Computed example of a mutant assay.
Amino acid sequence: MNFGWIVTYADLLLWGAGQTLLLLVISVGLGFPLAIGIALLRLGQNRVLARLADGYCTFLRGTPLLVQLWLLYYGVGSLLPMVPGLRGSILWPLLSQGFFFAALSFTLNYAAYEAEVIRGALRSVPRGEIEAARAFGMPPGMVTRRIWLPRALRTALPVIAGGVVLQLKATPLAFSVTVMDLYAVAYKVRQDTLLVYEPLLVVSLFFVVVAILINRIFRRIEAQVPIRR
């Protein structure tokens, strides 16, 4: 085994690790609130919005993430230059990068999966707790914010933690749209040095360490906010 290349590529490795973590933070940070909204729509009284939310989850959960990423990058991305005035706008440096499309597709996909988790957790909340809150005169919005949703999220914490880890493991797909994430750096090292296993081992170790940290964070949250039974 030869790991002498790590010193030479240290800066690039750090950049790639930062890009990987940034994709994870963006997709989870934006996707989770979106997932909550979608889950509430699916359980709401408005049938049209509920059907639209169902269709959203069905499509994104039923198609490969790589296909969704390519549809956005090679499909929508190829049409953006045709929008009048967009190339000269301040948004173009962002919209012309693969990172934007990777973050967008990861966010939308994560929201679809987590919406299903949250929907199940919301349905598992005992009706008695919700009815008791209503009996105290709480309006529907307050019941959702203070009783229904917090109770459901406490129940779903272990599954949510697993979803974040799965999202972490999906980030190497960004390499396919020119994002220089950690896997892309490993690919470059392989091309430059003809080393195959060593770069992949470094990437694997990074993902294992981050997954362990994610699990520890969620376990600490579970310990501080115990689930009432």
Rank of each mutant, 00 (worst) to 15 (best):
F59K: 01
G44R: 09
R61Y: 01
M1Y: 12
T20R: 06
G75C: 04
D192C: 02
G4R: 05
R151F: 08
I90R: 13
A121T: 00
P199Y: 07
Y110Q: 04
A103W: 01
G18W: 14
I217L: 15
A174K: 08
V185C: 09
L71Y: 01
V117T: 13
F99L: 13
A174M: 09
M180R: 07
W15H: 13
G120T: 03
A186H: 09
V209N: 10
A115P: 08
A184M: 12
V225E: 08
V159H: 06
D181N: 13
I36R: 03
L72F: 08
I38E: 01
G18C: 10
L168S: 10
S89L: 03
L194K: 09
I160P: 03
V209L: 15
A135S: 15
L80P: 00
F99I: 01
F136R: 15
A102F: 00
Q167N: 15
L213I: 15
A103L: 03
V125P: 06
T155G: 10
R51M: 13
V177S: 00
A223F: 04
A161N: 07
V25W: 08
F218Y: 14
A133V: 07
T63Y: 04
A115N: 03
A133C: 06
I217E: 05
A121E: 04
L122C: 03
R146Q: 14
T63A: 12
S27I: 07
K169Y: 15
G88S: 09
A50G: 14
T193I: 05
V28C: 10
Q97A: 12
L23Q: 02
I38Y: 01
V165N: 10
A186N: 06
I90L: 15
L86I: 03
C57D: 07
N46V: 09
L72Q: 01
I6H: 07
A170L: 06
Y187F: 13
I221P: 09
L195P: 06
P84E: 04
W148E: 03
G128R: 12
V28F: 12
L91D: 01
L95C: 01
Q191S: 14
P33V: 07
L21V: 15
R220L: 14
E114N: 13
A121P: 01
D11S: 13
I38A: 05
P150C: 11
D54Y: 12
A17T: 03
I130L: 15
V125T: 11
I212N: 13
V159K: 10
P81N: 04
C57L: 02
L66T: 05
V225W: 14
A10D: 11
G98R: 01
E114H: 12
P172A: 07
L205C: 13
P139D: 15
V210Q: 09
P226A: 08
V67Q: 00
P150Y: 09
V25E: 03
E116K: 10
I26D: 01
P126Y: 10
V48P: 00
V203A: 14
Y113Q: 05
V159Y: 08
W148N: 02
W92A: 05
L94C: 03
I6Y: 04
R216V: 12
I38S: 02
G88P: 00
F100W: 09
P93S: 02
W92V: 00
G141H: 07
Y110K: 01
A132H: 05
T20C: 10
I214F: 05
Y9A: 05
R134C: 02
M1E: 09
L94Y: 08
R228Q: 15
E222G: 09
L194G: 02
W70Y: 15
A50R: 13
G55E: 03
